[in-house]
């Protein structure tokens, strides 16, 4: 019985250690300090409202890029963003002005 338990424990530990965990989506509220447009993507730098740290987000959805181009979103705008860390970059999955009514 001990052998079976040990084998099971080992299997669980191995699975957890080698599994590729799903990338957690991170959220932030920040103010745009810089937008660098580069072809089919852009890097938007947001200053985190809480911590004050600068976060670079890679944006490649056409709707948001269009808003960068005609400055519907620009420096000084407060943004609610979600992103995933992938290949050392923060890939934006949600990028909208924190507007409302």
């Amino acid at each position: 019985m001990k052998k079976i338990l040990s084998a099971l424990t080992l299997a669980v530990v191995f699975t957890l250690a080698t599994a590729n965990p799903a990338q957690a989506e991170e959220k932030m509220l920040g103010t745009v300090t810089k937008i660098d447009l580069a072809g089919a993507s852009a890097t938007a730098t947001l200053k985190d409202t809480k911590s004050g740290t600068l976060v670079d987000l890679l944006v490649d959805d056409t709707v948001t890029l269009d808003k960068f181009k005609d400055k519907r979103i620009g420096v000084g705008d407060e943004i609610k963003a979600k992103y995933e860390k992938k290949d050392g970059k923060n890939h934006s999955t949600f990028f909208k002005k924190a507007g409302g009514c």
Binding site: K27, L29, T49, E78, K80, A98, G100, C101
Partner: peptide, 10 residues
């Protein structure tokens, strides 16, 4: 309430 901005929305 939007916890991030502190503003409220319908």
């Amino acid at each position: 309430k939007d916890a991030a901005t502190g503003f409220w929305e319908p």
